[in-house]
Design a protein around this nucleic acid. Structure first.
Length: 716
DNA sequence: AAAACATACATTTTT
DNA sequence: TGTATGTTTT
């Protein structure tokens, strides 16, 4: 089986271009990832040593899949395939001295980072109410992505906010160093900086790779751009692939210009365009094209497919989010009659909170479903607690983690004692754990506290002394610390869940060891810190997949529901003012549509519960941008045979459809009276005839959803 | 130190 | 609406 079998001429051109810069501009569904994979295999076949090839992907999942496929194609492992973040972590662990760190530094995730910033703000006596640490973190993160360090930031800070951020940034950075910790942005920033400032670091890594390939180049930020460019500068064998229309990470510092200006950077670059789509039917592709055509910041392209026309894009307008979910489920059931399984189906939404209504209805109907990344496993309290123990074992200078575990579960080291420990550590210029070790020297501590702290110290020494495989260490930590006992003794309603999560953590460690037989605790912690939501996703278990549009990047499904197409939600309200933001929302919509292979539904609700209040939701402008000749409207409730009546009026007889003319219906603004709810105003209506549903805001009980044919309403 | 109670706030999107 | 965090009470 040859590498180039089944490839189009354009694909072959991209795969076989051996020397010099190469840009592959590829539309959605054009087999871009396959091209990169084949190219890597081809290079090896041409005699390039596998370990001289570096391929950078967007997620760890994509990296794993690519590695596997290359091994299948040429039977050679050894290609370095990873994400920017994982790659940088490995580079820094190789030369930790270059940044003045230990080899076993800790990686802080976003939550740790915010936590740390919060503490810095408290120390600086900066009001965390007025300036949320989350916002400060985002500002610092952006600066790092632009490779602006704390000093530079301070030098250019003009507003009062910026000046305060500069102070926080400085202390935050100093704290990170003291804790031997790096946040996500540091991983990139330090590597990018070292490549520029440290000649030996630059030389080592430039010589290490002959070929550098970067997938999803449209989503690289400035630091990533610098890293890719500098790594490839010696051999100039850089291959970037991407689709400007799928750039959806601008808010994270991704700079679409990186791909748009690739040819300026490399004037001799070969550019290959892949315009044939192998994924979607004609109707779906037309819809996607017409939507994205409304963007101005783009390279005009003509995508085409040789696939059939297919089914038209179905537009569904539901009454509210519950109705939307019910309608989606009804359509899923209907498609099953046509041979589609649950596993063929994906439900996409703009924001995570929208998953709730779908979860509820799917659960109620007993339909198997998988949510990709809502309450992330590694964000759960019990998991973070145990991970903090493990981090402490690897790097005991990480005060943040030590502080987290020192009295978890409670062991008599209260707030007083903790403050005393912290103060003394600061005074002595030592880490918190060092202060724990020397607690007997602290004059201000009462004997009882010293006893408790000493016990903690002994516990940590026991754990640190374990030389066992990673899953065993995790298990020991959960048990020896008394954490599990504490959970089981508590009256916490979720204690069984917590126990299961802790067991799952041991299993996860075992899986890690299987993948990485020589893996150790530091390696496990690094992997845990850098897993993404999508990395956990496994298809093929026959369940409906729920995820945000962002998470859907790179995936495809036979049946796709793009939900919540409402002004203010998709596009998101805060993105509608700025044209660039709006265009990114539109690209996001384009990404969502182009995930669909055969059946595409675009749904919306007339009203949606937000912040506990029902808000009217006008249709998204993106719906108008889908041409009418590729769409088909589905009236609500179609296919839903048994719709539960609202209220207890079991005896109500359905009104014959024909008997109820449009003049019988309710209009928005109509005042009505209900036997139990009293007076109210119609705020939303949907459906027609006997199946008309209205939302009524009652003076006494708030908003209720009523079906006109069942509710005993009278017009006032 | 833990439970009971109160209130604030959330909705971008993620490595 | 639901969760997360803080405050009071025991």
């Amino acid at each position: 089986m040859g590498i180039l079998d089944d490839c189009t001429a354009a694909q072959v051109e991209a795969i076989t271009h051996v020397n010099g810069p190469l840009l592959v501009v590829a539309g959605a569904g054009s087999g871009k990832t396959r091209v990169i994979t084949c190219r890597v295999a081809y290079l090896i076949e041409q005699g390039v040593q596998p370990w001289k090839i570096l391929a950078i992907t967007f997620t760890n999942k994509a990296a794993g899949e690519m590695k596997e496929r290359v091994a299948e194609l040429v039977g050679t492992p050894g290609v370095w395939v990873s994400t920017f973040h994982s790659m940088c972590a490995r580079m820094l662990r190789k030369f930790p001295d270059a940044i003045g760190y230990d080899r076993d530094f800790t990686i802080y995730d976003a939550a740790d980072s915010i936590n740390c910033i919060k503490q810095c703000m408290k120390r600086l006596e900066i009001d965390t109410e007025h300036w949320p640490p989350r916002g400060v973190q985002a500002t610092i993160s952006n600066a790092k992505n632009e490779m602006v360090d704390a000093e530079q930031y301070g030098a250019t800070a003009s507003s009062y906010f910026e000046q305060n951020v500069a102070r926080i940034y400085r202390l935050y950075q100093a704290t990170l160093e003291q804790n031997q910790a790096l946040d996500f942005d540091d991983l990139l920033f330090h590597v990018a900086r070292l490549l520029r400032e440290d000649p030996s670091f630059l030389e080592y890594w430039q010589n290490r790779f002959d070929y550098v390939l970067i997938d999803e180049y449209q989503d690289t930020n400035h630091a990533q751009y610098v890293i890719a460019k500098d790594l490839a500068a010696r051999h100039r064998n850089i291959c970037a692939t991407g689709d400007p229309d799928q750039s959806i990470y601008g808010w994270r510092g991704a700079d679409i210009r990186n791909i748009l200006e690739f040819v300026k950077e490399y004037p001799d670059a070969k550019v290959v365009k892949l315009e044939e789509n192998f994924r979607s039917t004609k109707y779906i592709l037309r819809a996607a094209e017409q939507v994205i055509a409304n963007n101005t910041e783009r390279i005009d392209r003509a995508l085409y497919t040789r696939k059939e026309e297919g089914t038209k894009v179905r537009l569904v307008a539901a009454a509210d989010e519950s109705d939307e979910a019910e309608e989606v489920v009804a359509q899923i059931e209907k498609l099953r009659e046509q041979g589609y399984g649950y596993g063929d189906t994906a439900i996409f939404y703009r924001t995570n909170f929208q998953s709730r209504s779908f979860e509820r209805v799917l659960g109620l109907q007993g339909i198997p479903y998988t949510i990709v990344g809502t309450v992330e496993f590694y964000n759960r309290k019990e998991i973070k607690d145990i991970l903090a123990y493990l981090r402490t074992l690897v790097n005991d200078r990480d005060d943040l983690s030590v502080l987290r575990v020192v009295n978890t579960p409670p062991r008599g080291i209260g707030a007083q004692t903790r403050s005393a420990l912290q103060a003394w550590a600061r005074e002595q210029g030592i880490s918190l754990m060092e202060a724990v070790r020397r607690c007997e020297e602290i004059q201000t501590l009462p004997a009882r506290a010293i006893k408790a702290v000493s016990k903690f110290k002994a516990l940590m020494e026991t754990l640190a002394g374990l030389s066992a495989p990673v899953p065993e260490i995790v298990k020991q930590t959960i048990e020896a610390t008394g954490y599990l006992d504490r959970v089981m003794q508590s009256k916490d309603e979720a204690k069984e869940d917590r126990k299961n999560n802790l067991e799952e953590l041991v299993t996860a460690a075992a899986r890690y060891l299987e993948r990485t037989p020589d893996g150790d605790l530091p390696g496990y912690l690094e992997e845990v810190a850098l897993v993404s939501q999508i990395d956990e996703y496994q298809d093929g278990d026959g369940s409906v997949t729920l995820m945000t549009v962002h998470a859907a990047k790179g995936l495809e499904f036979p049946v796709v529901f793009v939900t919540g197409l409402e002004e203010g939600l998709f596009p998101l309200e805060r993105s509608t003012d700025d044209r660039n933001d709006l265009e990114e929302e539109r690209r996001l919509c384009y990404v969502a549509i182009t995930r669909a292979q055969r059946e595409l539904f675009i749904t919306r609700a007339h009203a949606r519960m937000r912040f506990g209040m029902v808000m009217p939701a006008p249709p998204s402008r993106f719906i108008d941008e889908v041409p009418e000749d590729v769409t088909e409207e589905i009236s609500p409730f179609e296919g839903l045979e048994e719709h539960e009546p609202i209220g207890e009026d079991e005896g109500a007889t359905p009104v014959d459809l024909a008997e109820q003319g449009p003049e019988e219906g309710y209009e928005v603004g109509q005042t009505v009276r209900h036997p139990t709810f009293g007076r109210g105003e119609v705020i939303v209506r949907s459906g027609a005839g006997g199946r008309q549903t209205i939302l009524v805001r009652f003076q006494s009980v708030g908003v209720k959803r009523l079906m006109v044919q069942y509710a005993k309403l009278e017009k006032v």
